[in-house]
Write a protein that binds this DNA or RNA. Structure first.
Length: 825
RNA sequence: GCGGACAUGGUGGAAUUGGUAGACACGCUAGACUUAGGAUCUAGUGGCGCAAGCUGUAAGAGUUCAAGUCUCUUUGUCCGCACCA
């Protein structure tokens, strides 16, 4: 321990004491600067593997280091888990609470396009700024474990994991439609498309087919749902993930395609349906305009021009336009028919944009009587509507509830469950269909036509096709370029680095080209929590020893906006590594919680354009880090949206000042019975409320306690010390300072957490409410656990009660011990 | 449309899970004090009423000795997904 640093350059504690004795005002600047330096110098929050201690891994989502700096929303999450981490530390756990930076991303690249400043340069500056800001809040991160995802020493392993995905056949190339801005000549992520237009230039975004790397997350869809059973995630996170994955059970059925006369054309139209039992109500079929049969059967169509026209129109529409308008359009494919395998009937086939190419098989059997969309379509095109389920009034609208089957031959009379079973059985017997589970979840599009991301470590050879580069060549570093715009074809800026692109095939040694797309942002953040376990390892992404000790993350807090992206991707990624044997557990996070947003004072979202952004630097400058932290916790229920209020912040600041001022009344006086009771009550409340993330009420408990202390002539030192310990997770600088002023030479953050005693916390007299017919008539003071008879007689003696009892007899008296007496008359 | 959350003073929010509604804080009112400091201290503060008292947790009904809390209906707000077959 560097004693000189601790005592502000003074040689001894006594000298230093003289110095601060002059400082009678709460000078948070001086206090916070000093303790931050001491924590830093002494590496107070550094952790190592210690098999003798129980570990606790607390994690918050690492930030993207934007140019704007920290937002007041970030510290809400960071402070919350800091409070939890600090309490766990005081309770004797070996706590890992790390921080790093998710440093690849678009803003740095856009900034580079605008200014010519290399993303690596601006990102480095931003990380420095973020680090300074985070340190100024006094968060107890182990800074020795800090890393950022754009460091080749880190992304080496991201690339290595991609090679594993490829090796196991989960990474593949596929032609898919991407959002394309014809003006910027760039592919856009969905998040960059605003109302169907390019976020940057405002031009209308079109769809364009491009070869992209995909990762087969859908292979894990079932497990991503099922394993939610075993983790402690807040319900809305679970339900959102389940909803997003969108599992639905049904069947796939084949309908033979024929010409108009019923002559088989040797092709089957496969459809997915959740209600195979309604097959007798099918009156037409619909394919997505992109369906391959539109091209395949073009020679058969009597109205091909009309069909082509519709296909072209659909292609021009953005997803938004396509879904915003729910009026039904389409074109019949004249010249072909489908044959219903259940009853042999020939029915017409249409194309329509209400059928999507990306879901199921891209084709449906339409049951207009029992599906509102099919019903609407049938009305527009005047198609027959056959009711096959009893109930409703299908002259008005489709009947989508359950009912017994009618007009359905062998299914007649059956309910939904039996009907579905029987229909699938029939399809199997006649080999035209089978049970099938479908998901809304799509495979993960893993290519970005960008510069500032991890290069995908793949090489294309004319002879050998796509080949992975040798692991020994990792990291495959980004080439240095100066022009960050994509080329006219929309290829990644990397395509211009020809020296880098042209390489040799790892398999045959012949000429080959590198993949020029980079990985999406989500790549680096999909496994970062593993790296924290062993951040400086250059042999493995983390050692087995470190993973075995530190994993799982015990408590992960982050924004709801990441529920269906980052949180799902990282769970999937982790499961994949688990299947490969690289990590010890199948789920990475034991517990997931989420914080609410912080809005501006008027209830609007904070944004640069509205000019209502609260800058943490300014808050800390005028109120101090402790007041800032404390206010972030006091602002409202942690999981709910909260509104910033300077006045409330000031109230918390006053509270902190009060604690500082109480120091003057601290004496060696012994605790009274009441003192003891109040103290233990506070310990119990604060402890419990921290664990439950009810930080706002934990702070209230401390305020109540402080109000009690303020009312005392002299404050017993033990009571004040307890306050400081309870305060330490919230306002660590002040707690540390006052702890030192009490004469301690240890750090309070390393002290033990106070233990509350429920027996001592009980007041020995209680106030009991007295009601007549449920209406409050007064209260009585009586000793705790007084016997029933005594409580009743005391209650009856109350003036208000006696008055009533004089005129009517009690019918019934209910006594709830230590709570209430209710006299029914 | 589907899924989720929610509705309490002038404001942010408490309420031991069915047991004194409004803790704690902000704001406001009145007073005190001052080395005028983002001061501090004291008292008050859901509504109506001079008071005793009455009334009160989005609206309506119900269960109960007792409902902010449980059940049903209605209304409204926020979030996520959305022509998912």
């Amino acid at each position: 321990m560097n004693a000189k640093a601790r005592y502000n350059g003074k040689d001894s504690f006594d000298d230093w004491k003289k110095d601060w004795a002059l400082e009678e005002r709460y000078n948070f600047k001086k206090i916070e600067e000093k303790w931050q330096k001491i924590w830093d110098d002494e590496k107070a929050y550094k952790v190592e593997i210690d098999p003798d201690k129980e570990k606790f891994y607390a994690l918050v989502e690492f930030p993207y280091p934007s140019g704007a700096g920290l937002h007041v929303g970030h510290p809400r999450s960071y402070t919350a888990l800091d409070v939890i981490a600090r309490k766990k530390r005081m309770q004797g756990f070996n706590v890992l609470y790390p921080m790093g930076f998710d440093a690849f991303g678009l803003p740095a690249e856009n900034y580079a396009v605008k200014t010519g400043i290399h993303p690596a340069v601006s990102t480095k500056a931003n990380i420095e700024n973020f680090t300074r800001q985070l340190k100024s809040i006094g968060l107890s991160f182990d800074w020795d474990r800090c890393f950022n995802t754009c460091d080749p020493e880190y992304y080496k392993w991201t690339q290595w994991m991609f090679l594993k995905f490829f090796e196991k056949g989960l990474a593949y190339k596929s032609k898919i439609a991407i959002n394309w801005c014809p003006s910027c000549k760039v592919g856009l992520a969905n998040e960059e498309v605003v109302n169907g237009c390019c976020e940057r230039c405002g031009a209308e975004v079109v769809r364009k087919d491009k070869e992209q790397w995909m990762i087969a997350i859908t292979k894990y869809a079932d497990r991503l749902i099922d394993d939610l059973k075993d983790v402690d995630f807040i319900d809305r996170v679970k339900s959102q993930q389940i909803n997003w994955i969108g599992r639905s059970e049904g069947a796939e059925l084949d309908f033979e395609i024929t010409d108009d006369n019923g002559v088989l054309l040797n092709k089957k139209l496969r459809v997915f349906t959740t209600r195979p039992d309604t097959a007798f109500g099918v009156t037409y079929m619909v394919m997505a305009p992109e369906h391959e049969y539109v091209e395949y059967f073009k020679d058969k169509f009597a109205n091909y021009a009309e069909i082509q026209n519709y296909v072209a129109q659909t292609a021009k529409k953005s997803d938004l336009q396509r879904t915003a308008d729910d009026s039904k359009t389409g074109v019949e494919l004249k010249g072909i028919k489908a044959k219903n395998p259940f009853n042999g009937k020939l029915i017409p086939i249409f194309i329509s944009d209400y059928v999507l190419t990306g879901y199921g098989t891209g084709a449906i059997m339409a049951v207009p009587a029992h599906d509102q969309r099919d019903y609407d379509f049938a009305k527009v095109f005047n198609l027959p509507i056959i009711q096959v389920l009893e109930g409703g009034d299908i002259s008005e609208k489709a009947y989508e509830e359950d009912g017994a089957h009618i007009n359905s031959e062998f299914l007649n009379g059956m309910g939904k469950e039996d009907g579905i079973k029987a229909a699938i059985e029939f399809a199997k017997e006649h080999s035209f269909g089978e049970a099938k589970i479908n998901f809304k979840l799509r495979d993960w599009v893993f290519s970005r036509q960008r510069y500032w991301g991890e290069p995908i470590p793949m090489v294309y050879c004319e002879h050998c096709g796509w080949q992975p580069i040798n692991e020994s060549e990792l990291p495959l570093k980004l080439p240095e370029i100066s022009d960050f715009l994509p080329n006219d074809e929309g290829d990644s800026p990397l395509a211009k680095a020809t020296d880098w692109v042209n390489t040799t095939c790892p398999k045959c040694g012949g000429k080959a080209r590198r993949e020029t797309d980079v990985m999406p942002n989500w790549a680096g953040s999909s496994w970062y929590f593993l790296r924290y376990c062993d951040p400086h390892n250059d042999k493995e992404f983390a050692s087995k020893e470190a993973l075995d000790y530190w994993m799982n993350v015990d408590w992960y807090n982050g924004g709801m906006e990441h529920t269906t992206l980052h949180l799902l991707y990282s769970r999937f990624w982790h499961k994949f590594l688990y299947d490969c044997g690289y990590v010890p557990t199948s789920e990475p996070y034991n517990k997931r919680t989420s914080h609410g947003m912080i809005l501006a004072e008027n209830g609007e979202k904070m944004s640069k354009s509205r000019g209502n952004v609260i800058n943490p630097d300014e808050v800390i400058d005028s109120y101090g880090a402790d007041a800032f932290r404390m206010y972030e916790m006091f602002i409202g229920p942690f999981d709910q949206t909260a509104m910033w209020s300077d006045e409330s912040l000031n109230g918390v600041y006053r509270f902190i000042n009060k604690i500082f001022a109480l120091f003057g009344k601290v004496t060696k006086k012994a605790l009274s019975a009441k003192d003891l009771q109040v103290m233990h009550k506070c310990i119990l409340e604060v402890s419990e409320r921290i664990d439950q993330m009810r930080f706002n009420t934990a702070v209230s408990s401390m305020m109540t306690y402080v109000n009690y202390l303020a009312g005392l002539e002299e404050i017993p030192q033990e009571m004040y010390e307890t306050l400081l310990k309870l305060l330490a997770p919230f306002a660590p600088h002040l707690a540390e300072e006052m702890w030192a002023r009490l004469g301690y030479e240890t750090l309070i953050v390393k002290e033990g957490w106070p233990k509350g005693n429920a027996e001592l916390a009980k007041d020995n007299s209680v106030t009991i409410a007295v009601q007549i017919n449920g209406k409050m008539r007064g209260t009585i003071e009586i000793e705790r656990d007084a016997d029933k008879e005594k409580v009743i007689s005391t209650a009856k003696a109350l003036e208000n009660v006696a008055k009533q009892l004089a005129v009517s007899e009690p019918k019934k008296i209910i006594v709830v011990p230590n709570r209430i007496v209710n006299i029914v008359i």
